[in-house]
């Protein structure tokens, strides 16, 4: 059987990309190995661990549970687009650093993308709400406590920065 190939045009972190890929290529593989945006990590490829979370048109999704071809015409945001071009970290990244919210750092990009969208929609969450929002992202190192603390602080910082 001839490989079933399709053209995919996407915008990732504001940059336009065009590639032709096989229809079965997962979005996670597309981002990592076609676009070489390897900051999005892959942990399970069955939609449980959350490491591959990216934003599709602003909403967090599992990039291992979507085909690259399905992203055609859509806008994606990944970890690489979070900090400013100047290198200045986003408040959510700063809070993770300040509160030791990461150890091996492998789950971190997925957690940041999930929580970015969450904090935008819920600017003043309770601890329990943060934990619920976080529950689709597995972390094996931190026991979550420092991530939760970081998110509560990040929420505050993001509230303060919104005019």
């Amino acid at each position: 059987m001839q490989p079933d190939r399709h053209e995919v045009q996407v915008s990732v972190n504001g940059s336009a990309y065009r590639r032709e890929v096989e229809s079965r290529m997962l979005l996670s593989d597309f981002l990592r190995h076609e676009l070489l945006l390897a900051g999005t990590h892959v942990g399970c490829e069955h939609g449980v661990c959350g490491a591959c979370t990216v934003l599709l048109d602003g909403e967090p999704i599992r990039s291992c549970l979507m085909l690259a071809v399905q992203a055609n015409g859509h806008e994606l945001s990944t970890i690489e687009g979070l900090a400013q071009d100047t290198g200045e970290l986003h408040p959510i990244q700063q809070a993770m650093h300040a509160h030791h919210g990461l150890q091996c750092g492998y789950c971190t990009p997925g957690i940041l993308m999930t929580m970015m969208a969450f904090l935008r929609e819920n600017p003043a969450p309770s601890e329990q709400e943060v934990r619920e929002a976080l529950s689709g992202n597995l972390c094996r190192c931190t026991g979550y406590q420092n991530i939760v603390d970081a998110m509560l602080v990040a929420a505050k910082a993001m509230r303060a920065s919104v005019p």
Binding site: R32, L37, A38, G39, H41, L82, L89, A98, L102, G105
Partner: peptide, 19 residues
Amino acid sequence: VKRNEDKKLLTGQALFIDD
């Protein structure tokens, strides 16, 4: 002391095996 290694990890720039 805050960690030296964090920045790479927080920005998706750390090299893991599949990278």
